[in-house]
């Protein structure tokens, strides 16, 4: 019942104080995630590609950046940009932009590794084949290597985007009015219904994440990343289990234990 009462706050959860004030709530999470994904894609692809260079003056800064970010908690990066950006731009940076920039910096490092792994996974012979027909390196990358690499990267990208969306909730710590923040405000206003407020937040995140992974699965199916069977949610692989389920024999066929049956496989 308390959960149903939260419906009175649904506008606040979804849009914050939007028509009157600034955008907030779940919509703000989505906007932040979208911007972070777009910018970090560009940055991450450049970073991951440069990291494959043999030239140390290109490669080493990329490795340094990727390793630095990957071994730092997201919340540290958020704080760091929160205090560092105003120092650079003279205090005119809103918490929203400092959150987007830090999410972007964080995501780029992870995406760089996905990009690198994807490019490395394309067999070396593909580049040789393309070059030997007289294609330039740029054309070989663009028409031969990258299309194959993106197919390999797609599942990792999607799972990373879903987790990046969830990570936008951390930005409440610097005061961004996103879903977590709105939930906290509601729970403070109605201290007797704290659990309902937190449950509402969980539902909000769940709906978006589930939609994202569902759409991604359909996309993967369409471009054929996996065979169709491995994508079926109900697919199971009992032969990999350490203790296999005892075999069901359909239509009441003989129930002889396997040690006695002659044709047991």
């Amino acid at each position: 019942m308390d959960l149903l009462d939260q419906f009175s706050n649904i506008n606040f959860y979804l849009f914050g104080t939007f028509p009157k004030g600034e955008v907030g709530g779940l919509l703000l999470n989505i906007i932040m995630a979208f911007l972070a994904i777009c910018f970090s894609c560009v940055f991450g692809i450049m970073l991951g590609y440069s990291r494959l260079s043999c030239r140390l003056y290109i490669k080493l800064p990329c490795i340094a950046y990727i390793e630095l970010v990957r071994s730092t908690p997201l919340i540290m990066i958020i704080f760091w940009f929160y205090f560092f950006l105003p120092y650079l731009f003279g205090g005119n940076v809103t918490v929203f932009w400092s959150a987007v920039v830090s999410l972007c910096a964080y995501a780029a490092a992870y995406q760089a590794e996905i990009v690198r792994a994807g490019i490395m996974a394309v067999p070396k012979g593909q580049l040789e084949a393309a070059l030997s027909t007289g294609m330039s390196r740029y054309n070989a990358m663009r028409y031969v290597i990258l299309p194959q690499a993106f197919k390999i990267m797609l599942p990792s990208f999607v799972s990373f985007f879903v987790s990046l969306f969830k990570d936008t909730s951390v930005t409440y710590i610097i005061g961004v009015m996103e879903l977590t923040q709105t939930g906290i405000i509601v729970s403070q206003r109605q201290p007797d219904k704290i659990y309902a407020a937190y449950l509402s937040m969980a539902i909000g995140f769940w709906v978006v994440c589930f939609t994202m992974s569902h759409l991604a699965r359909r996309l993967e199916k369409r471009i054929g990343v996996f065979d169709l069977e491995s994508i079926r949610p109900d697919a199971c692989r009992d032969e990999f289990m350490l203790v296999p389920k005892t075999k069901k024999t359909g239509e009441g066929v003989d129930e002889t234990p396997s040690c006695c049956s002659s044709d047991s496989k």
């Binding site: 067999p123 593909q126 040789e128 084949a129 027909t133 197919k151």
Partner: peptide
């Protein structure tokens, strides 16, 4: 390299393109 064709042991066809597109790619781009 445009003047030298090369055929590999493991074919190295582009798996994301049809047979026809495998053949037309280089003439179109080069």
């Amino acid at each position: 390299r445009a003047e030298i064709g090369m055929v590999f042991q493991h074919f190295n066809l582009y798996p994301h393109k049809t047979a026809l597109k495998n053949i037309t790619l280089a003439p179109r781009k080069v």
